[in-house]
Design a binder for these strands. Structure first.
Length: 397
RNA sequence: GGGUAGGUUGAGCAGGUGGUGAGCUCAGCUGGCUGUAGACCAGCCGCCUUCGGCUGUGGGGGUUCGAUUCCCUCCCUGCCCA
């Protein structure tokens, strides 16, 4: 039965518009909410998952595959496209949408994650980051202004402020330092952003420290971004730490009408628990990467298609799945393709995992729309599957 | 028949001219991947009752305290010559 919903909220930016169609119920049973994000290239129903297309391509897929899997918005990467083929070239070729033949909304990550995660030869200072290309070792420099300029050249629907994530396990001093820098860079990103047909999201950092995270959420929320990203959380934190941090940040943003985007998380269980805690948008390489590496997500768990037991299995990976893999091929065939190193394996597996993930989000939205999300949690959790190996270890430890 | 090069864990190779063999690449088995330097990475991969034990460098014999290594012999494979 429908629970009484809090009043709907709306955000009107210059280019982005976000309406909460079904707000979190007043009884506090969940913070999950149903929304509609309007961007220049289309509408995104939230909660929503964005497949990652780092190099202007979702690995192994044609854009038609991505759309068929149910994606309405994808992510592309500023750092990678800046290095190759170059943002100016993409601009000359008509912008990112035309370049990669994806007509729907695109969000570009600012490159902060790469610049920091690429390790070794990089130096962060208060003005920006000097780093070496992972492709040819050449030296480059990103500042908030440059990261914005690159994103404006790419021309995605949504650009993201340049930030400095740090591993969640970092010391408080390191987190505090990076968070303060992220705040200054957020101001500079915002000031540098000119493009009137492109939204801009700000990023909350603060690690796992409650004070720093809350302070960061409040700081970023006070700025006129079109959306709020929660960064620095797809790292080495435990599930409990992650969820506590999301709870805290969303609590600070509770009355904020803008979309909330949790960066980097993408397992079905992560998606569900984060929606439950009030998150609207997600991105992650996980479903596509594990697919390429042979792991297929199915209701209640996963199948490792490299296991010998599938070599004689005539069943589809998931009988009721509409994806190109499950419609026509057996587990035995996919297992064979992986062993043979056939490229088709990567496409079919990726199609499936993205279909599964995006269908899972659709189920979540359906429950939210019906006002039955909280009641559906057990069923959705069951579908999301058992704990990952690491979480299982945490549990038994 | 003569000559020659070889026979090492499923395959292909290393190594080793007296002092406890077994490394590499495939293949095989399993696990991990979360704002993608990832179609990747890690572990296992002779046998067993696995904190240990056993076997093991084509077979057999010999020399030796000790042989994969030296000697004899046989078998098998490739190549060359008859």
């Amino acid at each position: 039965m429908n629970q009484p919903a809090a009043p709907s909220t709306s955000f009107r930016g210059r280019v982005a518009r976000f309406d909460v169609l079904v707000g979190a119920p007043a009884d506090g049973s969940t913070r999950g909410r149903l929304g509609r994000l309007e961007l220049p290239h289309g509408v995104v129903e939230t909660p929503q998952f964005m497949p990652v297309g780092t190099n202007a391509a979702v690995k192994a897929l044609d854009p038609e595959d991505v759309a068929a899997a149910g994606a309405s918005i994808i992510l592309a990467n500023t750092y990678h496209l800046y290095l190759r083929p170059g943002h100016e070239r993409i601009a000359r070729l008509g912008g990112l949408h035309r370049f990669m033949a994806w007509d729907g909304p695109i969000l570009t990550d600012s490159g902060g994650f790469q610049v920091v995660s690429l390790g070794d030869l990089r130096v962060v200072d208060d003005d920006g980051v000097t780093f070496r290309s992972h492709l040819d070792g050449s030296v480059h420099r990103f500042t908030p202004e440059h990261a914005i300029a690159v994103q404006e050249a790419l021309g995605a629907d949504v650009a993201v402020a340049f930030d400095q994530p740090v591993p969640p396990s970092s010391s408080r001093d390191v987190v505090a330092d990076a968070t303060a820098r992220t705040h200054r860079w957020a101001e500079r990103s915002l000031a540098a952003h000119r493009r009137v047909d492109q939204a801009l999201f700000g990023i909350v950092q603060g690690g796992l420290d409650p004070d720093l995270r809350a302070e960061s959420a409040a700081f970023v929320a006070a700025m006129p971004f079109d959306g709020i990203c929660l960064g620095g959380l797809a790292g080495d934190e435990t599930t409990a730490e992650r969820e506590a941090t999301i709870d805290l940040a969303v609590g600070v943003l509770a009355a904020d009408p803008r979309p909330r985007y949790l960066m980097g998380l993408g397992s079905p269980a992560d998606l569900l628990e984060a929606v439950h805690r009030g998150i609207d948008l997600f991105d992650s390489v996980l479903p596509a990467r594990v697919a390429r590496n042979g792991t297929l997500w199915v209701p209640g768990g996963k199948l490792n298609m490299r296991n010998s037991r599938f070599l004689d299995d005539p069943e589809p990976v998931q009988a009721d799945c509409p994806c190109p893999l499950c419609r026509r091929f057996s587990r035995a065939y996919l297992a064979h393709l992986f062993r043979a190193g056939e490229l088709l394996a990567y496409r079919l597996a990726t199609c499936h995992n993205l279909t599964f993930t995006l269908d899972f989000m659709a189920r979540i939205r359906t429950a939210l729309r019906a006002g039955t999300f909280h009641a559906s949690l057990p069923e959705l959790r069951s579908r999301a599957g058992r704990l990952s190996g690491r979480e299982a270890v945490e549990k038994s430890a």
